[in-house]
Amino acid sequence: MLGVAFILPWLLGFLFLFAIPLVQSVKFSFNELIIAPGGYELMNVGWKNFNDALFVDANFNRILTDSVAAMLVDVPLILFFSLFAATLLNQKFKGRGFARAVFFLPVILASGAIASAEAAGLINLVGNSEAAKEVGDAQSGVDILSMVIMLDEAGMPRWFIDYIIEAVMRIYEIIRSSGVQILIFLAALQSVPAAMYEVAKMEGATPYESFWKITFPMVSPLILTNAIYTIIDSFTDSPVTQTIFATAFQTQNFGLSAAMSWLYTLVVGVLLLIVGVLISRKVFYYN
């Protein structure tokens, strides 16, 4: 019973601040909620809120699919980049401490408030948001066209070129959201026993081979962890969350907002399940 005493604060919080709100949220999604003095009134409307969210609301559909698609594009890029960066930072070279400090800087600077203020600052500067976006794109200053031609001549398939170009255009965003993932991969790399590399070297394996035959399998469980973390992390300031927030507190349509958030939860849940099953099949567990 001592164990229960230890988790009691969490249990209370879970019941009153998670479980009950969760049930209420389900209830709200089937009702129209009207704020009354000192409380609220509910009016049952059946599936209307879900119907509205999917078929009536002009934007929700598009925002949901867009942000899920963006998430799917981002996850492999972030995983690839963070594993690459972790491998780089794990090697010995002069100034490694400084490089590590810089690479983890995005962890502390990733702030929704700052991002939105920055965007607003740029809008101020140029007049409207569409122009701001164009200026932002122009400022990135990468000669995209020559790269497309180069990749095309190398015989890359079209979809792959699009993907790479996308990645290059958003390199800052990808680097910015990779901080924690680099940290986790770096910790994983350091837990790989050094003896393994020594044996491989004695047997004549090149560093390239030992990366794929030793490092990659040993850190593969963390690929799953990082994939899930990346997906969850993208909730925090995704456009969908903002839409749900605005629906609740600006248009005061609490029922519709609850329905939207349940649709979002459902989609994300299915996504996590698929990613989890797909990756855990390939994962190698050492112990």
Partner: peptide, 13 residues
């Protein structure tokens, strides 16, 4: 795993 937005309205109220 549950997005925060799901609990937003009940918590607020």
């Amino acid at each position: 795993l549950i997005p925060m937005s799901t609990l937003m309205v009940p918590m607020y109220l």
